[in-house]
Simulated scan of single mutants.
Amino acid sequence: MILYLHGFRSSPQSFKARLLAERMQQLGRAAEYLCPQLPASPAAAIAIAQNCIQACDPAELTLIGSSLGGYYATWLAEQLGCRTRAVLLNPAVKPPRDLEQYIGVSTQYHSDQPFEFKREYIAELQTLQIDRITRPERYFLMAATGDEVLDWQEMIGHYPQARQLVIQGSDHGISEFAEYVDAVLAFCGIASDRASTSAAGT
């Protein structure tokens, strides 16, 4: 089972989320992929994620988190124990700091629907902070040096000894993600005849 957690202001309609859904469909494993719409409240987002995976064996679960979703995925992986894997796509490392500027009303990227990011959500984010990961071998970090939103070096430092793939250039959304989707799925334990050798990382 794969649970994809999208980023701040994003949705299941994001490029990476749709690409993964399409690839899982092609492999005949669409039923093993979930990507819920997450609310602005971090506590509520985590509750939805936990509800999605409550019946899943942690050893059969991989979390994929993009940006803020990577922050959520890290917390969930640490709570679920050493058997759960996590793929982190340009993950947010310090969202309590980075999202201060978004307190107030914002709009979603894919619908322009307004939503409110409340000050109390910063405290909710703080409760999810993981200062140091355990079992780094269960993490796969993809970090783009051209990320215009988050600091890729901060990502690298936060996931020491994890499998790391540093993409030279690119952007926050990893616009060439199609080149890496099979490497991500290979880490999830889903074989593909197009699996990329780039999964080896550095």
Rank of each mutant, 00 (worst) to 15 (best):
V93M: 04
G189Q: 06
S196G: 06
A86K: 02
R9P: 00
R9K: 10
E120H: 07
Q129P: 04
A178P: 02
A17E: 07
I64M: 12
A49Y: 04
D182L: 12
I133Y: 09
E22K: 14
G146T: 01
L19I: 09
P96A: 13
R29T: 00
G173C: 15
T107L: 09
S11Q: 09
L80G: 02
P136W: 03
D98L: 08
L165R: 05
S11R: 07
D171C: 15
F15D: 09
A86E: 11
A17D: 02
A186Y: 09
V105Q: 11
A199W: 14
A199M: 09
P58V: 01
L3C: 10
M155A: 14
E137Y: 02
P160N: 03
L185R: 03
A183T: 03
P42W: 05
R85V: 05
A59R: 05
A47T: 11
A59G: 08
A21F: 03
I53G: 03
E179G: 09
K16F: 07
L141Q: 06
I64R: 02
N51C: 10
W75K: 06
Y159Q: 12
R132P: 00
A55Q: 15
I48D: 12
L99N: 11
M155F: 01
Y71I: 04
R9E: 04
D112F: 15
I190F: 02
S111M: 15
A21T: 02
C35H: 00
G173T: 13
Y139I: 13
R119A: 15
